[in-house]
Amino acid sequence: MKFKLKIWRQKNNQDKGAFKTYELDGVSSDMSFLEMIDVLNEQLIDKDEDPVHFDHDCREGICGMCSMYINGEPHGPLRGVTTCQLHMRSFQDGETITIEPWRAKAFPIVKDLAVDRSAFDRVIQAGGYVSVNTGGTPDANEIPIPKSVADEAFNAATCIGCGACVAACKNASAMLFVSAKVSQLSMLPQGQVERSERAEKMVAQMDEEGFGACTNTGACSAECPKGIDLSNIARMNREYLGAKVGSQS
């Protein structure tokens, strides 16, 4: 297969950046998208050109590191996969593929296609945990949890923090990411103690980071590689408003 690749190149955060177009031949349909970029990079190195920098690590769709905005969609045209799991068989031979970094004020560009997603870490630090110290916890089976609740919490917990939701959202909103964690912990008995405080703090941090607001377009959920459901956002709205109205201070 043969492709024309239109890739965003930007040396560092200060650099202005611009698109650069590359021709790439001899691509196998069994290659993953990142393996295709590997091939391009080997060719660039061969020509003494700086290879395209991008974030990637596990290459099995779970670490959440890879983050390419491909042909107008985060992680490309396929549903339920990350960029590393996207294979070239999903593209037409001869196609022009536009590859851009995640675009959001809260995700500054590090280099080329790699962005800084530490805003997500700070949102979790604001309250995405249950405050238990190591040791001294009750037996794991002491509190039964209905299977349906555990499953629902699990579904929210599968978020990989890749940021595709922010990238897909026309407002660069992080509501799906934040709501996934708020939901998971608000559903489980272990998360009840800090439930309202958590929702308030995480939402405040989310706003602080400069993410946009939710317009309920559903683009985040549609593009989410783990299919995190929009109902989580509704749940977070409930949790947040309930917390604000119901809390003592």
Binding site: G72, P77, E100, K170, T217, A219, A222
Partner: peptide
């Protein structure tokens, strides 16, 4: 973005 395919997801 340079290219946005909004119709794909919303």
């Amino acid at each position: 973005y340079d290219k946005v395919k909004g119709s794909a997801n919303s």
